[in-house]
Amino acid sequence: MRAATAVDASSLGAVLRQSTWMFAAMEVAHLLGLALLLGTTLAVDLRLLGAALRDQPVAAVAEGTRRWNTAGLLVMVGSGALLAAAEPLKLAASPPFAIKMALLGPAILYTYTVQRLIVRRPTPAFVARASAIVSLTLWFGVALAGRTIAFY
């Protein structure tokens, strides 16, 4: 809460609040990042489930989307940080935001550790499918929680 108050009082907070254009641009960037991040995540997870791109090796799908997955994540985290800096007090008191942040860390960690190992080598089908389900649950959990912030 102290951090939120500090950010709110900072010049960054002031700039972002005063410039509706900036805030809107960050929201647009957040959505464009979402298309990239969730689109690439879906491609890999659908492949792990054996539901799409079946004639491609899993490793090829993962490798072929990796840079865009990372780019999407960077755009989302960057725009997200600026959006949060514009309304830190409101978000600090928001249960959906707390849930979103609680899921985001595990989602990133999971994608860049466990999932990365799984896509690189041949794995039993049930492991691949379980991993995809974990990944989709985490990432769409983040997205859903994020969407709910506005309704509180």
């Binding site: 298309a35 969730l38 879906l42 491609a43 791109l53 865009w68």
Partner: peptide
């Protein structure tokens, strides 16, 4: 959320057309 399932997937095809993604396919 369905942006991810629609544009999110179609953009992979577009990125392939410009040789920026999924080049093994």
């Amino acid at each position: 959320l369905a942006i991810s399932l629609s544009v999110g997937l179609v953009l992979l095809f577009d990125l392939r057309l410009v040789s920026a993604a999924l080049r093994a396919a």
